[in-house]
Design a protein around this nucleic acid. Structure first.
Lengths: 354, 354
DNA sequence: CTGAAAGCGCTTACAG
DNA sequence: CTGAAAGCGCTTACAG
């Protein structure tokens, strides 16, 4: 049978009701699979829906139910160089699988800095365009978090929160990998590899992830009685460009470490590129370890030693936690920490005879 | 002054109206910057908005205006291995800059195959969750396109459309790079490089992009009087894994080409990895050219010769075209084609003495 | 099991 | 320049 295409003006629940000879509320109940409605009536209504080619208006439903069944994700561009870094695609894939399963939708916003990130986030939530948000770049002492808590808006953090004075903050929902462990294990690996001067090229100072990875680096250095030299501590953006900057810094300073722990694979790869140009060999002259196990690190030459991070799973978990919270505002806050593993490849091998 | 936080129950336009001593419609007009309202009244209303911490409900507005100011992007996962391929992040960045400028929002959906892609797309549109969509994987004879046209739903294609019988289809909005040229230039480069047996590892057969790149390959081969050997034509997914498969195919067959034009950098990189394992040297034994100028190809060893593709700009243009169409359904259809450039790197150098 | 009514929070002719 | 009313297309107590 032909689907009726006569109505160019969107067919509504009223049209369906008229066609089926019932009240609009009955149609609504059929749509909602209400067990109250008789099978007979349901059939009539479904018939009418088919014939008219009816599609429920999700916006109207959202308004009536005051829920958009949509969650927001805001990506702050320069911080993580947005998509350049493989972190985002992965986390979105993880989030997406949960949303698909739960019948939720994803609204994606880009922000150019912390300020616009905050504004955008609040705006999405308060305009009710989304029922909750996932935040991906925890900053130290982020005021956004307290605003969200204050307004009782559902959110979950990917990246643990810490306050301005580096203290714990009010309990919120978050997932993260153990970045202190990440820093520790990576640094320890370089130490055990026999490296003397181990530099750390960290991400932007205001990010918690940078803070934590540095913390792990410090721990390992202390544990093995190594002196931490300020000249070997440097902060750059989470990009290849950042890594290039870092390498340049060491080259110009005339003090070249013989190992670099980079807080991110992109940084590590950029640094390696620049070192190569300078005729400095990795790993012979300088060993390098990154973080994230990005695909690019696997094929690079030398292939990159790195710390695995369960990005996909963090996305999954974050989405699940957010939906739980949306469905019940009173669920207690908790967090989930994922373990990381050292993946040794060419960029940190050789040398070992200490 | 303290923002009033007493109302936990979302403050509405009515509350603002009451506070300002005006009618809700007046508040609405102030929000819309209507020139009809007196400056005095506007001030009063703005005051009230501030005091109450009012945020307009975007859902209600969408319903009233029957426009969500949101556009949809559906990413079909396995086809392009979604985000694994750097194409998507780039295109989203491009789209995002336009949407931000125009005050639109982005809804992202993942689909697992062509069928679910179609269903999801129609569903977003018909439920009025989005005002239009950008489609990213043009398939040959895609029935979705005619449905969208039939229902007069706004959309733009990234990737030119062609019909089941490889004929042109009804005019629609699309942007693309010139994939025939891409195939031609890449293949010609290998020919001029002195390569004898040039294989093409193409993407999935049902995608227009695969068809076009193959077409360019054929053209170049004919132009230079080369015979096209069916055994050197193979289709794989747009992933590293696909490239590995392709290399394996050539290895097993015992007929190794001495050049490979891969329809995508990921394929090219996968193939190179596998060839290396086999002790086959790139570019000495086999030259390889990819497409997309992905960051990973720049740092790989050997670095990858590739065709640049203006992915970011295609995203920008697509978003602009879609918004134009949403604002005026009667704009004529047209398309924009972006040029590509050959970027020669290590994977296709050496050998040339023919 | 079903209907009539009110409501979700806006916008926009229509009057004045 | 501003207000009162109807409408956008749903859902959901409340009756019966």
């Amino acid at each position: 049978m032909h689907v009726c295409e006569v109505f160019k003006m969107a067919v509504t629940i009223k049209d369906v009701a008229a066609r089926a000879g019932v009240n609009p509320s009955t149609v609504s109940r059929v749509l909602a699979e209400s067990p109250l409605i008789s099978e007979e009536t349901k059939e009539k209504v479904r018939m009418a829906i088919k014939e008219l080619g009816y599609h429920p208006n999700a916006i109207a439903r959202s308004l009536a139910m005051s829920s958009s069944r949509t969650i927001g994700l805001v990506i702050s561009r320069p911080t993580e160089q947005a998509f350049a870094n493989p972190f985002f695609p992965e986390v979105i894939r993880g989030i997406g699988t949960v949303l698909e399963r739960e019948g939720y939708h994803l609204m994606l916003e880009m922000a150019s800095d912390a300020e616009s990130e905050g504004r955008t986030t609040l705006q999405m939530l308060k305009s009710r365009r989304v029922d909750g948000v996932i935040l991906t770049s925890s900053r130290i002492g982020d005021s956004l978090i307290s605003r969200l808590i204050g307004d009782d808006l559902p959110f979950v953090l990917i990246g643990r929160p810490i306050g301005k004075e580096y203290q714990e903050v009010d309990p919120v929902l978050w997932v993260d990998n153990d970045n202190v462990q990440v820093g520790y294990v990576a640094t320890e690996h370089l130490i055990l590899n026999g490296r003397k001067d181990i530099a750390m090229v960290d991400g932007p100072k205001d990010l918690v992830v940078s803070y934590d990875r540095l913390c792990g680096y410090r721990k390992a250095m202390h544990r093995y009685g190594r002196e931490i030299r300020e000249e070997f501590l440097i902060n750059v953006p989470f990009t290849e460009e950042g890594g290039i900057q870092a390498a340049e810094h060491f080259i110009k300073s005339g003090r070249m470490p013989n190992a670099i722990f980079a807080a991110d694979d992109s940084i590590a790869l950029g640094a390696i590129m620049r070192l190569k140009e300078q005729g400095i060999t990795v790993p012979d002259d300088v060993a390098v370890v990154g973080v994230n196990d990005s695909p690019i690190g696997r094929v690079a030459r030398p292939s990159l030693t790195t710390m695995s991070v369960e990005i996909f799973d963090m996305g999954v978990r974050a989405a699940e936690m957010l939906i739980e919270r949306i469905n019940d505002r009173d669920t207690p806050s908790y967090h989930v920490v994922f373990p990381s593993e050292l993946i040794v490849r060419e960029s940190s091998t050789a040398l070992k005879a200490e």
